[in-house]
Design a protein around this nucleic acid. Sequence first.
DNA 1: TCAGACATGTAAGTCGTTACATGATTCA
DNA 2: TGAATCATGTAACGACTTACATGTCTGA
Lengths: 201, 201
Amino acid sequence: MAGYDIKKLVDAGLSHFWSESYGQLYQTLGRLVEQGLAVRGEDSGTGGRRRVAYAITEQGRSEFRAWLKKDFEAPSVRNEFLLKFFLASRGEVAEVRQLVLGYQTQQGERLAEYRASEALLRGAVEGGPWPDELRHALGRVALEDGAEESAARGRSTQQALILLLTLRHGVHSAEGRLAWCEEALSALEALAVETARGEKV
Amino acid sequence: MAGYDIKKLVDAGLSHFWSESYGQLYQTLGRLVEQGLAVRGEDSGTGGRRRVAYAITEQGRSEFRAWLKKDFEAPSVRNEFLLKFFLASRGEVAEVRQLVLGYQTQQGERLAEYRASEALLRGAVEGGPWPDELRHALGRVALEDGAEESAARGRSTQQALILLLTLRHGVHSAEGRLAWCEEALSALEALAVETARGEKV
DNA sequence: TCAGACATGTAAGTCGTTACATGATTCA
DNA sequence: TGAATCATGTAACGACTTACATGTCTGA
């Protein structure tokens, strides 16, 4: 694959849980070649429109397999919303509430996006063809087609299922955060009521 | 507050959703002073044990309030687990399953930690005193005490509630991810069964 | 007395983004 | 014909981490 393709693949299919910039990508490809984990194929095309295809080496493949088995770090420990929420703890309850409402909206929108993409993918999991939107976006990644041979059909289904499941992960996350919003809003509500009563007494 | 205190505060109370390193911290404090958003107080103490207290300026305070109201970016778009999960999509189902099992364990442990901290905090929300563990950790942040005056009790309760809610956010997130694990595992199970049947036929 | 916490800072380096430069090709 | 897309790359910068340097004070 060429760098451009990788970028397209990531943007199209993995954008809700991963991102790469060209800067990072080309530099990394260069480093992989230096380390013998990938080889740079011949340039095809000319001038600004030439393509450089990279291929993984045997060493690269085994390194990759080792990496897959290695521990992943726990999902990020930096949430700007929660930081603001915490730092607002001495301010007015109303302001804190506003903050949570904004978060609720944001997560609600996310959830809607995930659900829309999810609907698109359902078909391919049932052994049907990949939806055009995705086929186009993931184009050069050479998705296996579900039509012909049994083994190929199995692989295709598996790929579709896994892509679908990454989306489902987003759905579950967003749902969890929305459930939290409900809880937080009613807790703040209760606090406001209590405070008001306290002031009267 | 001094840089050291801020670091302690973040490590003790915010560690599950934020982190700062000394390098970042002292450099940032310096920049804030340059920009007139904070002032550097006199050094107290001598030699290696001196303390430098920083205080926010009026300008800093208004900048801070503006920042609180500004949009936060959606929680991070980089999840190493999901990347591995996606990239494993052409491998054996059994390996993918292993990956998910690891994630399940990790998230289960996280959930247990959150629940433990949560129990600690419950008391303070009920208007009781801050638990010693937290009082010590958050020490210099000058937590308001819930004992005396009505207004102070209100503020203290609010602070405790908000800290508790940040923890609850972690609980909801972990629960959502664990629910996903269940779903993913049974989907992979179904796939394996189907594939086996396909091969026999 | 001596390990460990206290406390501040700097330097080096990694990781990642944005902006830019270059130039071919496609298509309205 | 000219804007958009294709495609590769570099340079500059900012955010962040790790490691180090320095010296003091506390408590077992």
